[in-house]
Computed example of a mutant assay.
Amino acid sequence: MALKVIVKLHSFVLLLLLMHLASADIPATGSEIITKPGCRSHCGNVSIPYPFGIGPGCFIDKDFELSCDESIVNDIKPAYGSIKISNISIPDGHMTAEIFMGRDCPDNRYTASATLVGTFTFSSAKNKFIGMGCNTWAYLGLDDSASICTGCLSVCNKTKDITNGSCTGVGCCQAPVPVGLKTLYVKVGKMFTNNTSERLSFNPCSYGFIVDESSFNFTLPYLKDFKNNGTGTVPVVVDWTVGNETCMEAARNPSSYACGQNTDCSVPEGNNTLGYRCNCRWGYTGNPYLQSSTLGGCRDVDECKEICKGPGGKCENTEGNYTCVCNNGYSYEVRDNITYCILENKSSLPGSTQNNNLNKIVVGKLCF
């Protein structure tokens, strides 16, 4: 997989690639098919959904090729490059990567850089750039030529100046991540003035990093020690697409078109990279990148098992849809997107909406 992260520790260039794939969006149960026939679906207890894969013919292209080291539990490595991945989302086209941060500590200063190859980009919608520390400057550049992409300043001298949960420039500052970012260079340092000629005891280090916004909430203890004085990693959302064409262009060539049966194709909004994503249509579930519904691709959901309930109802499942009919003497109520047929004059279900029309027919599509 052509995902490359180069972490620079002074003059030492470290190429480290560990990939742990966990898919919360595609269940890895015994009956759920997530890979192509004959391909491995797990490395240890970690699931590997197609278009990612291990071994020849098991991945969609070289950017998605993985390897599994049996001697290390859950050690899944891309064939190329190096970042550690903790989650893959098929519906969203997202991955959560673990990225090293830039830091300035009393005994060391690290500058971190990272490069994503192919159609992988750092998500501008899910990530933020963070500068953390008293009297700290941090910038996110495109390379080591100091071409600044974005940055921020954080100032403080006393702990009473700092508010937990606030990242507005006092102890912590933030800036947006540019759209389509594939290469980053994070540098951070301390600003010393006449009033602060030495490092503060409660804040020995300064930090700069991009991070999944939903996973980061600034607190005062971070200034004392954050991720083992910055030697750890932070989670970052990486967007991915397949191919290098639009949906219309890709669909013209069925032999290379990535979307299987009963799928919709989309191009991510605001993403200036090439490629597209596949998702199962409403009323279908499965892995949209697998071509056949009988081999793990998008298959019909039987809504009658979950959607139309109650002794006075009849449900007919159709391909990608369903019909729910309430008999005479029954009315329908909807709660949590489930239709219940109940006897009239009975008390309503909590949190439901009721309609007293007889023989009500509900026809709908649900997104799974």
Rank of each mutant, 00 (worst) to 15 (best):
F52M: 05
C167R: 08
I162F: 04
S47Q: 02
C205T: 08
M248R: 10
V242P: 00
T183A: 12
G102P: 01
I338K: 12
S124V: 02
N321W: 10
V179Y: 02
C167G: 13
S67C: 07
V13E: 15
V188F: 01
P106H: 03
I34H: 04
N317E: 04
S197V: 12
E249I: 04
F192S: 00
A112H: 14
D92E: 15
F122E: 04
T231Q: 02
Q174H: 12
G81A: 15
E32V: 14
T219Q: 04
T35L: 03
D264E: 13
N45I: 12
G275Q: 08
I99L: 14
L17N: 03
P235I: 11
N244M: 08
C367G: 04
S67D: 10
P204V: 13
S215E: 08
D336H: 10
V46W: 07
C298I: 06
P27Q: 06
F59D: 03
V46L: 11
E344R: 13
L153A: 07
G81D: 13
N321Y: 14
D161F: 05
C173G: 14
G102T: 09
N74A: 09
T285Y: 07
D107G: 15
I6C: 11
S214Q: 13
G38D: 02
A175K: 05
C298F: 09
V236E: 03
P37L: 11
D104N: 15
G81E: 13
G296Q: 05
Y257F: 15
G310W: 07
S266M: 04
G283Y: 13
P78T: 12
T196Q: 14
S86P: 01
P311A: 14
C265L: 01
G296A: 08
Y289H: 02
Y332F: 10
P37E: 09
T196F: 11
D25E: 14
M19C: 02
I60T: 04
N359S: 14
G230S: 01
Y340I: 08
S86C: 05
M1K: 08
V186G: 06
L66R: 06
V238W: 09
L3E: 04
G320K: 06
V73K: 04
